[in-house]
Structures are given as C-alpha cells and as structure tokens.
C-alpha cells in the first residue's frame, strides 16, 4: 500500500493575509461589529454595545442576527431531530440517555411505545418492567420531543421506526457533519441500513424489512448476520470514518459514492 508522508516542515503554509476568503473567521474575544443594531446569537456576547465572538469559527448572519458557528462542538438539540443514544440509567418512570449533548437526555416512560399496542394504559407493572424494555447500555433511535428551560432534551420513540437497535455498529462523528435532510433513515442499495443521527451518532446495520421489522425494537433479532452483510457494514463504517476525517458532509449520496469508490479495495485479513 502506497502512503504519502509529509514532514511537518514541508507542509504548505496557507498564507493568512493574502487568502481572500469570503468567510469571516473570528476567534474568542474578537469584535464582530461595533454597530449596536444587531442581535446577539449563539457564540457571541455583548459588552459596551460591541458584539464579541466567544468561540472560534465563522460568522453567520441572518438578517439582524449574528451567530458564530464553531468548527467542533457538542450537539445542540432541536425539536424534531433524529438522534441515536445509549441508555445510561433507569430511573423513576424515565431513562437517562447519552446523546453527546451537554446534558443527558431524558426518555420518559410515557414517551415510548410499549409492546402490545398504542392504546394501552401504563400500569405500575410497566414501571417495574422498565429494565426489561430498555436496560443500561442499550442503543436506541429516538426523536427530540422538547427542550427544557435549562437546555436538557426530552426524547420520544412514539413511532415504529424509532426504538431499540439490536445488531449493527455505532460510529461517532462531529454533529456538524451530519447534513439535515428530510429523512435520516436510509436503506442503502448495497444491502445495509444507515441511521444518521443529528447528534453525530451513526448507526449501520444489515437492511431491515420495513413491513415486518419495524416493531419499535422490542423484539430483538439475534440471528447470526451473514459474512457478506458484515463486510458491507464494516465497509460502510470505514467510509463514514473516512468522510468524517476529511470533514465531508454525511448524507445518503455521499456515503454511497464513498462506498462505491471503496469497492476496488479488497478486505485484507491483516
């Protein structure tokens, strides 16, 4: 395998002064504008009628609102986002879920579809059975239902496409790399399904049959996955990592093209 190695000294230094970048890059403490007619957005703060940046990134302006978007940050939730999370704790009528946000998200018992139909009363029995539905370490897909006043997120899985995920791999990427699309669930033609969580968690698993397998995940499929399927999943896993390393946006087409480009490389046993 051919590798290209550069010495640190031979790296091309991009000249900061001559580069006519249309993007306005700021660093913390830099004055964005001294004009008081603007509104303060994320990543900025106001002092003495001047607007300062509080993070390093590029300035985004929407009419009178000025925001600074950092290159890398934790996930900032929005209502309606699809997220992948891992159960951390089972508590009083709620689960705590890690979604790479600044606080653990909460999944209420009343916000999940329990096995046995929609119109079912939640009894004390359910509260006692919570750990049987979702235990610590389980991975779920969910949707953001609400944002609490302190910024914590509340999730729900009240649709058959959400719920517990059984067999597959989880990849972590920066949340900013996941492109916002109409749908984040994709059945790729290469024989695998991918869920691109807005929080930067990507789930890759062998294709699920939409009609029979969307059970909210309470029936766990533990049948062995064939070698061919595992190879496809592993290849997609590497494709996602490669895209993230080069800071390319993740969505179905970009992943599929990367997958196709990678097909000329064989799986090595080493």
């Amino acid at each position: 395998m051919a590798l290209e190695i550069h010495l640190a000294t031979s790296r091309v230094q991009k000249d900061l002064v001559s580069n006519e970048d249309p993007k306005h890059i700021v660093t913390p403490g830099e004055v964005i504008t001294a004009d008081s007619g603007f509104m303060r957005g994320h990543g900025t703060y106001m002092e003495d009628d001047k607007l300062y940046a509080s993070v390093a990134g590029c300035v985004e302006r929407v009419n009178k609102l000025i925001c600074v978007k950092p290159v890398k940050s934790r996930y900032n939730g929005e209502v309606g986002d699809v997220v992948i999370g891992r159960i951390l704790q089972v508590g009083q009528r709620r689960w705590k879920v890690d979604i790479h946000s600044r606080q653990d998200a909460i999944l209420m018992l009343s916000a999940v579809n329990l096995p046995g139909g929609e119109l079912r009363r939640r009894s004390e029995e359910d509260e006692r059975m919570m750990r049987d539905y979702l235990a610590e370490g389980d991975i779920i897909s969910a949707e953001v239902q609400a944002i609490f006043s302190d910024g914590a997120l509340s999730l729900h899985t009240r649709s058959l496409k959400y719920g517990k995920l059984s067999q597959g791999t989880l990849v972590h990427v920066a949340p900013s790399l996941v492109k916002r699309r109409k749908t984040h669930f994709h059945n790729l033609p290469c024989g695998a399904s991918i869920i691109l969580g807005n929080n930067g968690y990507v789930w890759i698993c062998p294709t699920v049959n939409e009609d029979t397998d969307h059970t909210g995940g309470f029936i766990e499929n533990t049948e062995p996955v064939s070698l061919a399927d595992r190879e496809v999943v592993a290849r997609l896993h590497n494709c996602v990592i490669a895209l993230a390393q080069h800071r390319m946006m993740l969505y179905d087409t970009s992943i599929l093209y990367t997958f196709e480009a990678s097909l000329k490389y064989q799986v090595s046993s080493a």
Binding site: T27, P28, G29, Y52, V55, A56, R74
Partner: peptide
C-alpha cells in the same frame, strides 16, 4: 477553543 466552548477571550 478547539472544543468550541464559549469564552470571553
């Protein structure tokens, strides 16, 4: 700064 945590300066 790399973590994108807001600071005064």
């Amino acid at each position: 700064i790399d973590a994108g945590i807001p600071m005064k300066d």
